[in-house]
Design a protein around this nucleic acid. Structure first.
Lengths: 342, 342
DNA sequence: GCGCCTTACAAAAGCGCTTTGGATACCTTT
DNA sequence: AAAGGTATCCAAAGCGCTTTTGTAAGGCGC
C-alpha cells in the first residue's frame, strides 16, 4: 500500500492524505479521521526512501564502529551503547545504520556516508587522543557527537563522556585511605582517550599523596581477561608487589582476580581491586554486595543521552556544541579492604 | 555533487553518466573513462535514497536485536556477529540497519520494516523454540535468514547454525573417556533453541553411556558470570558433587572457575570444565594452551556466512531455502583432566 | 451583489536516481 | 544506393513521497 493507492481508495488527492497523516492544519478533522482510519486499516507506512528523498533528510543516524585490523577486536561496550541509543532513535522515527570499519580507511567511510547522503549524523566511537576524525567531520559538514572526548583537539564539538579522571581520583583516594601505598594500574591502550584520562586521575592522586609513580606498576594494553591476568602475575612477582590494583574494566578485573587467587592470595584481603564498571547488561557486578568495588557508569545511559543530543543538534539549524559529563558512582564491594601490614 | 551536476559538467546526459558508472555496455570506453575520472575527482557517490527509490530495492539489511524487557540483557555475541556480517554487506554495497526491540512488540517491527520498505531482508537473531517470527516473516514476505534454528517449526527456511548437539556430544564423550561419570550442565535459558540442542547433545551421550541424567546437575539460566558461579557453588555443595561440568559460554565458565577455586579445588584436576567458546574478539580463550577446554566456533564467521546467504537469497528471484551447519572444533585446554579417583 | 478572507482540497513540480524507448551517425551488405 | 546493423548517446518517464502553488466554495461585511 502506498500513498497513491491510499488516496485513490479514499477519493482524495495524495496531498490531502499526506497532510492529514502528518498533522497539517489545513485538513478538516472529519477527513483526517477518515484518512487515519484507512491508513491504520491498511497498515500504511510511508516509504523511508521516498520520504527521505522528498525531505532531503536521511532519517537515519550512522554509527561507525572501528575494529582494529590487528586484533580484530571489537569493544564489548558497544552492544549496550547501541541498545541505549537505539531506543531514542526509534522513538523519534530515526533508523540506525552501522558501518563496521577497520581503522585503516575510516576517512572513506565518513566521506562516503556524507556523499551518499545516507545519514543525517554520526556518532564517533572510541575517540583517541588527537583524534583526526573530529576535524574531518567538521570539514565535510556531517553532524556528529563523540562518545568520549579527544584530548589535544581544540576545535569545539559535542560529546558525552564519563568523568574518567574524577572516577580514578576517587578510586585512588579510597585505596589510599585504606592505607595502600603500592597501587598498580591496569589500563586500556593509552592511545585511547579514556585510558589517558584514567591514568591522569590515578597519577594525580598518587602524587598529591606523596606517592611516587612506579612504571613497573603501570600497565596498558587490550582489555582482555588474559591481559588482566598476565599483568597481575607480573606485578605480584615483583620484589615489592602492589597491595592494590586499579583496573579499567570488569573483564580485565576477572583476569586480575584469577591471577591473585592463583598466587594463593585473597582478593580484598591480600590485594585490593577497584575496577571501572560500564554496567554491561550481561556482566552484572555481583549481587547484594558487589563482587568488585567499582566506579560505575552505565554505558547504556550514555547511549541514550548521546542520541538525544545528536538528534537535537540535527533538528537545530544553528547548533551549539553541547557537552555532558557523567559522574561515575563509587560502589564499595568485596574486593577492597585495608592494606595488609607487612 | 549529484548526477545532474556531474552530467552537466561533462556535457553528457544523466543516462550516459549513470550507465558509464554502472558498467553498462552501451558506453564507449573513452567516455566511460572520462566519466569515471570526473566522478572520482568530485568523489561522486549516488544517493542511496534515490537509488533505492529508483530500483525498488532498499540496499539495506535489517538486524532486529531482541532485548529482554525483564533483564535488559543483550546477548554479548551480538557485536562480533554484526562485525562479521557487516563486512559482507559493505563489500556488496549494502547498508546494515539495526532495530533494538524489546520482546513485546517484535511483530510490529518486522511489519514496519516491510511496510516502510526500508530493508531488503532481515536476519533473525536468537531463535527460540517454536519461534513465531519465522511464520510471520514468511507471511509478510520479507526475505530472512535465521542465525540458529527453531525446533518445532516445520516450514522450510534458511539458516546458519552451529552443530550444537554434536558439539556437546563430543564434549561429553571426552569427559566420559577421561573417566567422569558425574557431569554437570550449565546452560542458557532453554527456551532458546541453541540451549535446547546442547542439552539434547549432553543427554544423548550420557544415556548412551549408561549414565542416568540427574536433574540436580542440570542448570539453565541467563548466561552471566554470576549464574555460572552460583550454580557451580550449589552443585559442589551436593553430597555427590560432579567431577566435571559442561558450560554454554565462556562468561559462565569464568564464574564456574571462580566457584571451583573458592571451594579450594583446582580446575582441571578436581573438577574438569568444558565450555562452548564463540571466539569473541574481546574474550580470547587463553594463549598457547587454551585456559578452557572448549567447543569452539567463531560467531564472526557465522555472521559472514549468513550475510552471504541472505544476499544470495535476495538476488535470486526464486530462492530455495539454504542451510549451513557449522561444526565446532573441540580444543583441549587446561581445564580438563582424568576424573579424580574417590 | 461585490470584494475579501477563510477553509478544504487538488495539480503539479521536484527530490536524485534508473530505465525505457528512441534518435543519430556510421558501417556493412547486397 | 537502399536496406539493415551496430555503436553511442539522449529525452523523458517513473520510483513514492513532500511541498509549492493554485482553486473552488462558503461566509462575511457593506
Amino acid at each position: 500500500m502506498n500513498l497513491k493507492q491510499l488516496s485513490l481508495e479514499l477519493g482524495l488527492s495524495q496531498t490531502t492524505v499526506s497532510r492529514a497523516l502528518n498533522g497539517f492544519p489545513e485538513v478538516s478533522e472529519a477527513t483526517r479521521n477518515r484518512v487515519q482510519l484507512a491508513a491504520d486499516r491498511h497498515q500504511y507506512r510511508p516509504s523511508t526512501r521516498a520520504k527521505g528523498l522528498a525531505t532531503g533528510k536521511a532519517l537515519a543516524i550512522g554509527h561507525v564502529i572501528p575494529v582494529s585490523t590487528k586484533h580484530e577486536t571489537m569493544n564489548p561496550i558497544f552492544g549496550d551503547f547501541i541498545a541505549g541509543a537505539g531506543e531514542t532513535y526509534s522513538r523519534n522515527g530515526y533508523e540506525m545504520t552501522l558501518s563496521i570499519v577497520d581503522d585503516q580507511n575510516e576517512d572513506d567511510i565518513y566521506r562516503g556516508l556524507k556523499a551518499r547522503r545516507s545519514v543525517d549524523g554520526v556518532v564517533v566511537h572510541a575517540p583517541r587522543m588527537h583524534d583526526p576524525r573530529i576535524a574531518l567531520l567538521n570539514e565535510i559538514g556531517l553532524p556528529f557527537v563523540v562518545h568520549g572526548r579527544a584530548s589535544g583537539v581544540t576545535a569545539p564539538y559535542s560529546w558525552v563522556d564519563v568523568n574518567n579522571r574524577r572516577a580514578f581520583n576517587r578510586a585512588a583516594d579510597l585505596l589510599i585511605d585504606l592505607g595502600h601505598r603500592r597501587i598498580g594500574l591496569i589500563n586500556g591502550l593509552e592511545v585511547m582517550d579514556f585510558a589517558h584520562r584514567r591514568r591522569n586521575g590515578y597519577m594525580d592522586t598518587l602524587t598529591a599523596n606523596g606517592i611516587a609513580a612506579d612504571p613497573s606498576l603501570m600497565w596498558s594494553g587490550e582489555m582482555t581477561e588474559d591481559f588482566g591476568y598476565q599483568s597481575t602475575r607480573e606485578m605480584l612477582a615483583l620484589d615489592n608487589p602492589p597491595t592494590a590494583v586499579m583496573v579499567s574494566s570488569l573483564i580485565l578485573a576477572l583476569g586480575v582476580r584469577r591471577a591473585i587467587e592463583e598466587c594463593g592470595l585473597t582478593m580484598g584481603r591480600d590485594v585490593s581491586v577497584i575496577t571501572h564498571d560500564d554496567a554491561l547488561s550481561y556482566f552484572r557486578n555481583g549481587g547484594d554486595v558487589p563482587i568488585f568495588t567499582a566506579t560505575r557508569s552505565s554505558v547504556r545511559d550514555a547511549g541514550r543521552r548521546l542520541a538525544e543530543m545528536l538528534l537535537a543538534d540535527i533538528a537545530n539549524p544553528f547548533p551549539q556544541p553541547q557537552n555532558e559529563l557523567l559522574e561515575a558512582e563509587l560502589m564499595v564491594g568485596q574486593s577492597t579492604g585495608p592494606a595488609p601490614n607487612l
